[in-house]
Design a protein around this nucleic acid. Structure first.
Length: 473
RNA sequence: GGCGCUAUCGUCUAACGGUUAGGACAGAGCCCUCUCAAGGCUUAAAUACGGGUUCGAUUCCCGUUAGCGCUACCA
């Protein structure tokens, strides 16, 4: 049974790279009928916050992909501690009584890695037990083999065969002196206990995997498959960091910018993975059907953003593509709440919203465009842009538009065709170009110099409102 | 410093020894047109560098350089 997990630690908001890791895990699980597990890795009690936990759930819920099982590491501390003591008992680990932060060998970092605190590995079991019983603080470390220069190997589904000498692996900590497990221990103990079959995570864990192989081995557990993902980096090439790059790396930035959740999923998939057939816009089902680690590349991907524009241009384009191509009835549930939040009501009964959204979406890029650029369709109070005023100020424009208002009022028919005929007839009568009235009408009806074909605007605004706006110029 | 990973247009990427190095976004131009978009067409833009291997390297090997990651009782 294929089982994968996404294991965020609640120390900040859900960031874009984490979101992608979640998505790739989810895709892989769905692709192969496996189980998707959400595990909150909250063993760092110093840095965890409830607010962060909430924002992770907010982000995940917004993506709308869901998961099958959920765990929290802090509920499973006994499991982790038992694992640590199992390793201690089997001789795979030992107590290190050197106080935190005073590791000897810190200074020897220049000529090589720090490997262990001298003398600690050799403390006898009896002495170790006695000092622990006496209350002396200690950390439990993995006793990495030192006698032979053993090579640890594993095969990564993305990066291929990996190997590292034990001479380059330090005696990493398993259990802190405060009794809390470290990430390495908790993660492996849980992965083993939860029968995780594939570990899919960021490439920043590639080097750590050797330690994990060591832990799984000492625990007597089956070693899972690994798939490491290239990192998402900032335009300057640096790892995306919450601290350095601010909220632009948060999932909520795209949500709040009016993106469809699926656009974001689609966009993130294209960062570090390719369907290899030049397709870019893909539905969720298409992604599930074709996702594989074969298509994941090995170099970091740059997320394009600047301080004044946190949104990657390609993501914006992708969003406009999705908005235009999805069934309009599927788009409405996303548009409606955005309108409501802006305090805008839908002015006409049922078919109208679908028709109007369909009219507008060809030139809109985000959901936020509906209440802003599309405000005139939903409300009578809307701003009149300077360039729209220019159209209205053209000689004869205002008079012509008022006359058009009267003419439309006198004609009970109000269709695109009838409005066009009335307008063109009037232009002839007045001896002005039809464009003067057409562009003027758009300006009068929407307050904007640009937008959909004017005659479509008339029917979308509706007879009464259109006439009123024309007469008011 | 040590270890690991990576290197194709500005960005995301395709080409798993033989292509005029392809696509997309962003840029420029043209067409369409009641405006603006959309759409169509065109254009500019890349194999980090140096050695090998080979009849032939973007592709395989080595080195250099650069970037990233790990090197915490963070994850």
């Amino acid at each position: 049974m294929l089982r994968v997990r996404f294991a965020p630690s609640p120390t900040g908001y859900l960031h874009i790279g984490s979101a992608r890791t979640f998505i790739f895990n989810w895709l892989y699980a769905r692709r192969h009928g496996g189980t998707m597990i959400l595990r909150i890795d909250d063993t760092d009690i110093e840095r965890n916050t409830d607010q962060s936990l909430q924002s992770i759930f907010d982000g995940l819920n917004w993506l709308g992909l869901g998961w099958d099982e959920q765990y929290r590491q802090s509920d499973r501390l006994d499991l982790h501690r038992n694992a640590a003591y199992q390793l201690l008992a089997s001789g795979a680990a030992y107590r290190d009584f050197v106080p935190a932060g005073t590791d000897e060998g810190e200074k020897s970092h220049h000529d090589g890695p720090w490997l262990f605190n001298p003398g600690q590995r050799e403390i006898s079991v009896e002495e170790s037990d006695r000092r622990a019983a006496a209350g002396e603080p200690f950390v439990i470390r993995y006793k990495v083999p030192r006698d032979s220069s053993e090579i640890i190997t594993f095969h990564d589904l993305v990066y291929g065969p990996q190997s590292k000498s034990c001479n380059d692996i330090e005696d990493f900590a398993l259990l802190r002196s405060n009794g809390m497990p470290t990430y390495h221990l908790a993660s492996c103990a849980d992965d083993a206990d939860l029968n995780i079959s594939h570990i899919v995570r960021g490439q920043d864990h590639l080097s750590n995997t050797f330690k994990h192989v060591l832990i799984f081995r000492a625990l007597g557990s089956k070693i899972p498959e690994f798939a490491h993902l290239p990192l998402l980096v900032a335009p300057d090439g640096a790892k995306l960091s919450k601290r350095k790059h601010g909220p632009v790396v948060s999932v909520t930035t795209y949500r709040d910018a009016g993106f469809l959740p699926h656009t974001y999923v689609n966009f993130l998939c294209l960062l570090g993975w390719s369907p290899k057939d030049n397709r870019e816009q893909l539905t969720r089902q298409e992604l599930v059907d074709i996702f594989s680690f074969e298509g994941v590349n090995r170099s970091n991907a740059v997320v394009n953003f600047t301080e004044d524009n946190p949104i990657d241009a390609k993501a914006l384009w992708l969003n406009s593509q999705h908005m235009r191509s999805m069934p309009v009835e599927d788009l409405l549930p996303y548009v409606e709440p955005v309108l409501a939040e802006a305090g805008l009501a839908v002015p006409y009964p049922a078919p109208w919203l679908a028709t109007t959204v369909d009219l507008l979406r060809a030139r809109f890029n985000t959901l936020l465009d509906y209440p802003t650029r599309g405000r005139a369709y939903f409300a009578d109070d809307f701003p009149v842009e300077a360039d729209a005023v220019k159209n209205l100020d053209k000689p004869g424009a205002r008079e012509g538009l008022r006359a058009l208002g009267a003419k439309l009022e006198a004609n009970p028919e109000f269709t695109e065709a009838s409005v066009e005929k009335d307008l063109r007839d009037l232009a002839d009568e007045l001896g002005v170009k039809a464009g003067l009235l057409i562009n003027g009408a758009r300006a009068a009806l929407t307050g904007q110099p640009v937008g959909p074909s004017a005659f479509h605007v008339f029917t979308a605004i509706g007879r009464d409102r259109a006439i009123a706006r024309l007469k008011a110029v």
